[in-house]
Amino acid sequence: MGKAILVQGLRKRYGDVMAVDGISFEVQEGEIFGMVGPNGAGKTTTIECIEGLRRPDEGRIEVLGLDPQRDGYSLRERIGVQLQEAALPPRLKVAGAMDLFASFYPHPMDWHSLLEMFGLTEKAKAPFDQLSGGQKQRLFIALALVNNPDLLFLDELTTGLDPQARRAMWNLVRSIREQGKTVFLTTHYMDEAERLCDRVATIDHGQIVALDTPEALIRSLEAERRVVFEVDGPLDEERLQAVPGVIRVERAGERAVVYGEGDRLLSICGSRSRPFSPSSMRR
């Protein structure tokens, strides 16, 4: 399977702020790739550089084998873009918007089926400014799919949606991937990334902090566990410290806290439960 996106050493500065500070990654065809991070971490700048909407200061970007700056127009015929912030003319009707955007592409899809897929058929005659937040969001995703793109960008797809609408949106994204499309999405919800993505890049202060499958990322977050218990009388801290897997031991009055490596710590507690009986276990 080929590469859908290649990013090497991407940098983008706004004034004094380094929005993206040396990011590199690859996205394979057919995967759902997520970028997670707090607001202002550089997610949107990264995605917009890849879409060709922003010019990077430094770095190499290749999308579907094209340079987003040089081959912007031919690239944009093959990608679908849902922007974090966008609008349509307030009086433009849903059907009119689909028609208009279909006219921008040489081989558009039949947009009626898209409206059906996104539950907007009944709203076809409604003007844009009378749609609810969720309906607007669904319309923008439908518009992003009108050219039957190979690669779909979703920037903060479920921000501002209620839990039910979010779940429905996740199912839609999965069904889009099942059609063989690659999906690149950003989110600040870890649970969204966990449920949707094949691989996740965690980004903060313009840099990738971690890049792995969601399962592996969550495992690594849980790398350090601690066991808290109460002790009557003396505690042989040195003996505890010497146990493999234990990082350190703290004692405050009757309370003792043992920090250790993930699952190994639990097994220690299990096997040596007689001298130490944990009163509570926390992550």
Binding site: Y73, R76, L83, A86, L88
Partner: peptide, 15 residues
């Protein structure tokens, strides 16, 4: 149109 993000949405198409 520019302020509301309408033009940005057009920019993301081959228009």
């Amino acid at each position: 149109s520019r302020e509301a993000g309408v033009l940005r949405r057009y920019q993301a198409t081959p228009l």
